[in-house]
Amino acid sequence: MSKYFKEAELLKRLAKNDKSAIETIYQDNYKLIQQLIINNNGSEDDARDIFQEALIVLYQNSKSEAFELNCQIRTYIYSVSRRLWLKRLQSNRRFETPVDNFEEIVPVEDDVEVHEKLDRQYGIMRSALGKIGEPCKSLLEAFYIHNKNMQEISSYFGYTNSDNAKNQKYKCLMRLKKLFFAQYKNGI
């Protein structure tokens, strides 16, 4: 199999959140990013954060139909990591010299920008879910994330009938939406 097909196959597995795909990508690329970050004023933890963030960018992209990778995975991850790290250095005002380059890079500014927006939304959702408390959190997760139906939910959470459960779910959802949109609209 040519390298191109191997990588395409790897991306497909990544899109399915396949652990062995993550492992392969880790093995092939982690050292490179580690070197990049640590040689440019970063710590061991920074290297991990940036690498994982770059993988999330790749993962989100690999799930979308429209995405087409025109370079090697390695080049892409390197470019995204480099961009993310530059941004972080700038925001921390530690930025003095341009980040050293020892790999080819491709333009990824747009992808990083999209990622930052999504990451912000992720953070808002996480904090909103953290604030609504139990049993709301579990109830909403059961319905919207684990796709359980109302009968299953009412028996699991001990509601006498599914109307009661629906009522409760509605209240919880409204609270979550309120929390989410309050912050979401604030940011725009």
């Binding site: 909403l140 919207y144 994330i145």
Partner: peptide
């Protein structure tokens, strides 16, 4: 948004 949150998590 909620389901994207779950997959990313």
């Amino acid at each position: 948004e909620l389901s994207r949150y779950a997959t990313v998590k």
